[in-house]
């Protein structure tokens, strides 16, 4: 029997959030945390959490498992359970809608702010724009982001200034377009990032790198943006 402790809050009935204990029989198998949640939901129909692809590519089920952010669907119990106990909380730093479901509005707003789309002011050719494999390699480690918010919600700088600091996820995507040889809006993009908050609130804490379920490195991308800003302004 696995003891699971889960953060519960239903705005219609609860005046304050609380932790609820569940006993789950995994029959000794090393299942994923998401499977455990399915089992809990059969005990308590009202348990709310997001899920979709169940294979770690859609980014729905980011949550805090025994103190560390990650995706429930690709986190096996063996990796996270300590002393036979599993504690599940919503991603920290964002408003809770219900149980493990957070309001991702601010996170998405910061993503939209960096203009997350290719901009190219030259007329498009009849075929694709050519790009050398070396230039394409520069996008590896950047475009794979699944917007699960594990990184930004583990970042103290994002906790303190979620409205002003773009956060690791947004900045990783910002650099994805700055690094793309096909994008021509580099100057405008950099101008938008020069202020003291958007990029420079990053203090190099590197929680983002520690939790990214896709193994990406936002801190490095932020460093590259700083280098570009410096090169551009000096």
């Amino acid at each position: 029997m696995l003891q699971v402790s889960i953060y519960r809050y239903n705005p219609e009935t609860d005046s304050a959030p609380y932790m609820q204990e569940f006993q789950v029989d995994t029959q000794g198998r090393d299942v994923m945390v998401l499977d455990v949640l399915h089992m809990v939901k059969e005990q308590d129909n009202g348990m709310a959490y997001r899920r979709s692809c169940r294979e770690g590519v859609c980014g729905s089920d980011g949550m805090n498992m025994n103190g560390k952010n990650g995706l429930a669907c690709i986190t096996p119990l063996s990796e996270v359970v300590k002393d036979g106990k599993l504690t599940l909380r919503p991603l920290p730093g964002l408003p809770v809608i219900r149980d493990l479901v957070v309001d991702m509005g601010l996170f998405y707003k910061q993503y939209e702010r960096i203009q997350p789309y290719l901009q190219n002011d030259t007329p498009a050719p009849a075929i694709e724009r050519l790009q050398s494999p070396e230039d394409r390699d520069k996008l590896d480690g950047l475009y794979e982001c699944i917007l699960c918010a594990c990184c930004s919600t583990s970042c103290p700088s994002f906790w303190w200034n979620p409205d002003k600091f773009v956060g690791p996820a947004g900045l990783l995507q910002s650099y994805r377009f700055l690094a793309d040889s096909r994008d021509t809006a580099t100057r405008d993009r950099l101008a938008e990032l020069e202020d003291p908050f958007s990029v420079f609130r990053c203090r190099g804490i590197m929680n983002c790198v520690a939790v990214c379920p896709k193994g990406l490195n936002p801190t490095r991308a932020i460093g590259k943006i700083r280098d570009m800003l410096l090169a551009n302004a000096t």
Binding site: L118, E128, P133, R136, F177, D183
Partner: peptide, 20 residues
């Protein structure tokens, strides 16, 4: 339709000649 996607920014892998 595929070229449109590329123009929108889809990061296709590339051959040495730069094509998709």
């Amino acid at each position: 339709a595929v070229f449109e996607l590329e123009h929108m920014g889809l990061p296709f892998s590339r051959f040495d000649n730069g094509r998709i």
